[in-house]
Amino acid sequence: MKTQSYILRFSVLIITFIGMPLFLYFSGNFQKRTTLMETISIVTILGFSLLLSQFFTSRLNYKLMKKIRMVNVVAIHRFIGYLFISILIFHPFFIIIPKFFDNGVTPSDAFLRLITTFSSTGIILGLIAYASMLILMITAFFRFKLHLHYKTWRNLHGYLTLFFVIAATWHVVDMGRHSNMSFSIYYILMVAIGMFYLIRTNLFKTAKK
């Protein structure tokens, strides 16, 4: 019974953060481009939804937490963390990969154009999100070298995440290739729920241990 329920919870997580985006991707009326481009798109979409899943594979999701041992939660959280970060860190480069396979705009020109189009809110948000993701990654990686109080660490990590997620989601909703209405609602919903958990945990439950 106990194992079953946490398998169930995991299935819910997988369905919500892998099944759902894939469903939205295939059911959305998107113009298909080359296989390479579409594969890159799917990987990126999953990278982002995994990021959103992070809210729910942490201490915030105490229901899940109660069912499995804390070390496992941390391990899962860390694994997914590194997974999505390693996808999203390449995201700006993924976009220009097709340029290696044609004779037109060179990959470097395309990349330069991409990261210097400052007239676009989406690009600015993307740059901010990217930078905060790097900070998030570095601080997580060196967490123990920082010699922070657990609570300070948790707040830092939490608020940084909040900032990152808002910038990233806004960026995705604003310029995502596949950000149609259903995708946007899905993203915003997930972020809203996640934020609710995060804020509740950090603000109201800090006293509780």
Binding site: F30, Q31, V105, R113, L114, T117, S119, S120, G122, I123, M175, G176, R177, H178
Partner: peptide, 12 residues
């Protein structure tokens, strides 16, 4: 010309 998705507004 069918659709434009994921535009960064570079005007190229």
């Amino acid at each position: 010309i069918k659709s434009i998705n994921g535009c960064i507004g570079c005007e190229e």
